[in-house]
Each structure stands twice: as C-alpha cells, then as structure tokens.
Design a protein around this nucleic acid. Structure first.
Length: 375
DNA sequence: CACCATGCTGCATCGACATC
DNA sequence: GATGTCGATGCAGCATGGTG
C-alpha cells in the first residue's frame, strides 16, 4: 500500500493536476493561463514536482507536464467518476506516447480545453450530460444541454464504431451550447492540415447522431457550426486567405460550414467564448448594437445584420465568422458598394487588411465590454 | 488495380525503480 | 542484490485515401 498525501480540492494545485489528467500531457505554456501568473505557476510546479506528483517531459522541443502514478492514484481516490475515463486502461491520456505527432495532438486538445475552462464551459465528465454514450445505452432521462459543455476528441470516440470511420479528422472536440453545436479545431500557430472528406464525414456524423438521434428537440442541421482556435489573430488572416497549399492538404474555407468562427487561445478568446455560450448576454449586445441602426434587409443580395442611415449593409463580425465575412466582403466588392463591419478592437487590423478599404470598420472596446458584461 | 503515404492502435520488449 | 511491477518506447499491422 502506498501512502498518499492528501491534496486539497479547490486549490490551484488540484486544478492543475485535473487538467493534466484530462489532457494526458499539458504543454508548459498553458500554466500561466490556468493560475494567472508565470511566477506563481512555476512555484506551484516545483512544489508538485517535489511531491512526486508530476514530471516534466522535454523532448523534440516540446515541453509538457505529465502525472506520476502517485498523482493518478490520488485523483482516482478523490473523484473517481471524474477521472477514471482518462486515467485507467491503455488510453492515450493514461499512457502517453513519445512520438511527436501524438504529443502534439494532446497539446492541441489541452490548449482548447484550457480556453474552454477559462470561459466557464464544463469540461469534466461529471459536470456535463453524457451525450456521447456508446451505441445501445439506455438513458434514464432525455438529454438537454443547458450549460455549455466541451467534449474532447477522446470522449467523442466513446460513440463506438461510427467514429472510427472519421479517423484522420483534425477536430479537437465538440462544443455544445444551448443554441448551437461547434465542431472545434485548434490550428495553434501554424496553418492546420485539413482533409475535406474527413471533415465532411465528421459533420455528417454530428448531424446524424446529435441533431437527429440524441438531441432532436434542441438542435437542427443548421445549428452545426465550426470553430477554430488559434494563437493570434494573425492566424485568422492566414485561414481567411489560405488556398490549401500546393497539395491542398492544408485548411481552406471550402464551404463545408456556413458558419466557421475564429477565436484566439487567450484572454480575448475566452471572453468571446463566454459571450457565445451566454444567449442572454449575446442578445443584449445585439440589441445594443442595433441602437441607431435599422433592421436587416432580407431582400438585399448582401448578407447583413442591420442597415445604416444611408441604407448600406452592416455586418456583426465580433465572432470572426470567416465564411460570413468572406461572403460580405466579396458581395460588396462585386456590387461596388460600401458597408460596415462591427468587431472588437483587437480584431480590426486583420479584418481591415482582409476586407480592404471600401469596408468601414467600427470597433467595440474589449476591456469596456468585459467590465460591462462580465464584471 | 497495385502501390505508396499517412495516421492510428495494439503489442512486445526493455529498463527504471521500488520492495523485500 | 534479487525479484517484481509499471510505464516508456518503437514497431508491426491495419485502414484509408491518393496516385499512376
């Protein structure tokens, strides 16, 4: 019998261990995002290392933290239903492989998970409805999503054989909000690989299983959307302008998703994600922006959210919905008209560069917005 | 249709470490 | 120091999909 030191729940240290547990390996870069400061993060980690609860792996220029057997035992004793899925058996998150692609995949999922958690989205299995139960399971009550929940790619695989058919897809998980489903990707700091057919099948599977079979009262086909996370807004520019590379194996806006948002894996992205998951706050912002504008023109051949005093179209682009922005910009160009795009201050530079000068950009101050909406 | 490249999973082996 | 256990490692095997 090993004697296990107790570790307080609801501490930063416990939070860190929990995130490593669901991630398998947590990239070192994510620690300040979880504890707030770099120096405190380092302090926590040296203490966890001294207690023999974590080990740091540094190989192939990739630095990441993993749990020791002792830490796994401790977490399982503390909250078995939360961690058993990730910490038992021969699974990717329990027995972490050393090959670079495998570690990178874990890192991409971990970054997305941190963003989700920091935005208040449920990430732990005991906090969210069991949506991806294996085929044939009998439910005690019908499923509904009230609070936004993120399911990582490993959890989705619980579905069984059907998912095996979409191997090769680059998704890191699926975000379910009260209104929509977002197939989620993480392009990190480089243009991600993209296989049109695999991604098509992922979308079809999500529609089939979630919209038609499991949550038909909540979701319809048009609620299936895409979400890409990335390191900075510069990645949004690369995604918006990508042609897929010479071999067409990299990301390209191919029309698979009518709605495909881009958010950053940082504080700004977390704030926007919070807004995305909160229908009431979102409606409130929408109402605020509508002040001084006129209702959208449905007859206009340009997609729009509102019309200004001159009758020009206005697009709300604060979620950086890439296909929408592309359609808006292209239609204005084609018809030689002008229009206005409303986004946050930190998004302006990239969107202006992409859309060109005939589109006016109005910005919302992120800091002011945050103080007003999420104090 | 054969061949190759890629991505993913399971398996066998080896070594580090703990225990007695 | 002998023995036992666990996890790291890399490879084999398989499916898929692209290409000539």
């Amino acid at each position: 019998m090993t004697v296990i030191d107790a570790i307080e729940k609801d501490t930063q240290a416990y939070l860190l261990l929990s995130l490593i547990a669901v991630s398998g390996e947590l990239p070192a870069s994510q620690i300040p995002r979880l504890v707030g400061s770099v120096s405190y993060g380092e302090k926590l980690f040296t203490s966890l290392r001294d207690k023999k609860l974590i080990r740091t792996f540094y190989k192939d220029k990739l630095r990441g933290h993993r749990l020791t057997a002792k830490a796994k035992e401790l977490l399982l004793a503390e909250e078995k239903e939360r961690f058993a899925f990730f910490l038992t058996g021969n699974t990717d998150t329990n027995i972490v492989r050393s090959e670079v692609p495998r570690r990178l995949r874990l890192h991409r999922v971990a970054e997305a998970t941190v963003t989700m958690r920091n935005a208040g989205v449920s990430i732990f299995r005991d906090e969210k409805p069991d949506v991806f139960y294996p085929e044939g399971t009998i439910l005690s009550e019908p499923l509904t999503i009230e609070k936004a929940a993120f399911y990582n790619s490993r959890e989705i695989k619980e579905l069984g054989d059907e998912v095996v058919k979409v191997r090769g897809a680059r998704t890191v998980g699926i975000l379910l909000t009260a209104r929509d489903l977002y197939v989620t990707y993480n392009t990190a700091d480089a243009l991600m690989k993209w296989e049109y057919k695999s991604e098509m099948r992922t979308k079809a599977l999500v529609k089939q299983v979630l919209c038609y079979q499991r949550l038909p009262n909540q979701y319809h086909a048009e609620n299936v959307k895409g979400l890409v996370l990335g390191e900075s807004m510069e990645m949004a520019y690369q995604l918006l302008t990508s042609t897929g590379g010479t071999r067409r194996s990299y990301f390209v806006l191919d029309g698979n998703y009518d709605s495909f948002l881009f958010l950053t894996n940082d504080h700004a992205g977390e704030v926007l994600l919070r807004l995305l998951c909160d229908s009431e706050k979102h409606d409130e912002l929408h109402q605020m922006l509508m002040g001084g504008l006129y209702p959208p023109h449905t007859a206009m051949l340009i997609e729009n959210d509102a019309v200004d005093e001159q009758g020009n179209p206005v697009l709300f682009a604060y979620f950086c919905d890439m296909p929408r922005i592309t359609r808006f910009s292209a239609a204005l160009n084609l018809q030689g008209k002008t229009g206005t795009l409303i986004c946050f201050d930190f998004q302006k530079e990239v969107l202006q560069r992409f859309c060109g000068t005939q589109i006016q950009i109005q910005t919302i101050d992120l800091n002011k917005f945050e103080r007003r909406f999420f104090p």
